[in-house]
Design a protein around this nucleic acid. Structure first.
Lengths: 119, 119
DNA sequence: TCAACGTTTCAACAATCATTGAATCAATGG
DNA sequence: CCATTGATTCAATGATTGTTGAAACGTTGA
């Protein structure tokens, strides 16, 4: 991921509606969600949602497929991973103390819910 | 870090000049850089830089202190850490496969340069 | 083929953002 | 105190962005 792509991704996430879309889609998993469901879940008009979905799609953070009448949107895990990696790579430039605090959040990732952090 | 703060941080990083400022300041380390040096290094006018520095400061990603005639800006490591943590926490919601690829970048953080990754 | 549903496109508008140059403010040295 | 250096504020401008409703499109079932 180069600087241009990173900027596009940050722009995409720098908007309340779009951040919520990404959150909802990540939670929804690979199956994704129909545009209509997303619209009601987030509370925006279909027109407005389409606008933001296009932005996110263009930034490589989500993808879509048609299923019957509906268009299903899902999170682009690779795009999201790339962004995290970019952020950490930049922040780590000779300064590991920036990334270190994020280790806790990451380690909480592969553990069943409720499992505490202490070594 | 709540949603509102995260959005502000993403907005701040979603602009080429500002992203470069953060990069330069992270590389510069805790000592930071004078505003004038930053301006020449990045290639923008003093006026314009001030505008972007204010945005970044408001987003909690940088901080400043006065030293004589100069104002020294430096990266706010905590703010950056919080943003990474937020991104990973959101992306990890039951979907660790999103964060996993970032582990490599993170592990590269605490190792001397040139040391390879293989276990 | 037609009607209905889900989604997208389009045009228009207000609001926000990025950039510029002139003016101003803060700190230092003569 | 004055001149100089470094940085910020201010006002104005063009560009981009977010939102809206009406119209159009694609898909499906009757």
């Amino acid at each position: 991921m180069d600087e241009r792509q990173a900027v596009a991704a940050f722009v995409a996430l720098g908007q309340e509606t779009r951040l919520r879309v990404v959150r909802a889609l990540v939670v929804a998993g690979p199956n994704g969600l129909a545009a209509g469901l997303l619209a009601t879940e987030i509370g925006v008009s279909a027109t407005n949602l389409t606008f933001h979905l296009k932005e996110l799609s263009h930034a490589g953070l989500i993808q879509s497929r048609r299923e019957g009448k509906s268009v299903i949107y899902s999170a682009a895990y690779e795009g999201l991973s790339d962004l995290i990696a970019f952020l950490m790579r930049d922040c780590c430039q000779g300064r590991p103390e920036v990334c270190a605090p994020a280790v806790a959040a990451l380690s909480a990732c592969n553990r069943p819910p409720g499992d505490s952090v202490h070594a």
